[in-house]
């Protein structure tokens, strides 16, 4: 099977795996997530400058955090890969710094108790489009984007436009904005 095709069908599947961990503490689902994501997290962290030992430890801690924080996973806000990326990123920063990284305030995401399945599906499709769009970028641009995420860019490269087609996830941004605007409190003036 074409690898892109395979990934495409797997995006939703990984979401479902996390939901099984969340709802049923399903160890088989967790093992499958571990098999897929842990080596990728480790590879990503090594590319970002971590030693093999540190990358292994961060990858393990990321997966432990996934288990413990599965109740925070919301497939209408982030895909499985996106959510796991943010956990791994924070583990990396925590390993480098004395204090936790500053995170934005938690904002409520609207009065509805459960995200609509349609939102989750739209997000999942847009993330897939984003992946194909990233792969469709010219080699040089694609490399710049990847190296930006590894923290491996020179000043001039960082200033260069990446040409990332973020318009492909426009409707996700709109959804997120609509939700936030419904609930965002006016800050103190």
């Amino acid at each position: 099977m074409d690898p892109t095709e395979q990934k495409r069908s797997q995006g939703d599947d990984w979401n479902a795996h996390i939901l099984r961990v969340r709802n049923h503490r399903d160890e088989a689902a967790f093992a499958a997530l571990f098999g897929h994501f842990a080596p990728r997290i480790k590879g990503f962290l090594i590319k970002s400058g971590a030693s093999g030992t540190m990358a292994e430890e961060c990858a393990q801690e990321t997966m432990i955090t996934l288990w413990h924080k599965a109740h925070l996973f919301d497939p209408s806000r982030a895909s499985a890969a996106t959510w796991i990326f943010t956990i791994a990123r924070n583990k990396k920063i925590d390993a480098f710094r004395r204090a936790a990284r500053p995170e934005p305030e938690d904002l409520p995401w609207g009065p509805e108790p459960a995200p609509e399945a349609a939102d989750a599906l739209a997000l999942s499709q847009e993330t897939e489009h984003l992946a194909s769009a990233l792969n469709a970028l010219p080699e040089k641009q694609r490399e710049i984007v990847k190296r930006a995420y590894y923290g491996d860019l020179t000043h001039s490269e960082l200033a260069e436009e990446t040409g990332l087609p973020l318009g492909t996830i426009k409707s996700r941004i709109r959804l997120a904005l609509d939700r936030l605007r419904q609930t965002l409190n006016e800050p103190v003036k």
Partner: peptide
């Protein structure tokens, strides 16, 4: 809220980059 929504898309890019990085056993 607008910057925060934009951040979500940059994090999605991060997820894609991580997915496509060569894995290490």
């Amino acid at each position: 809220d607008e910057s925060r929504a934009m951040l979500g898309s940059y994090e999605a890019v991060g997820g894609v980059v991580m997915e496509e990085t060569e894995s290490v056993e």
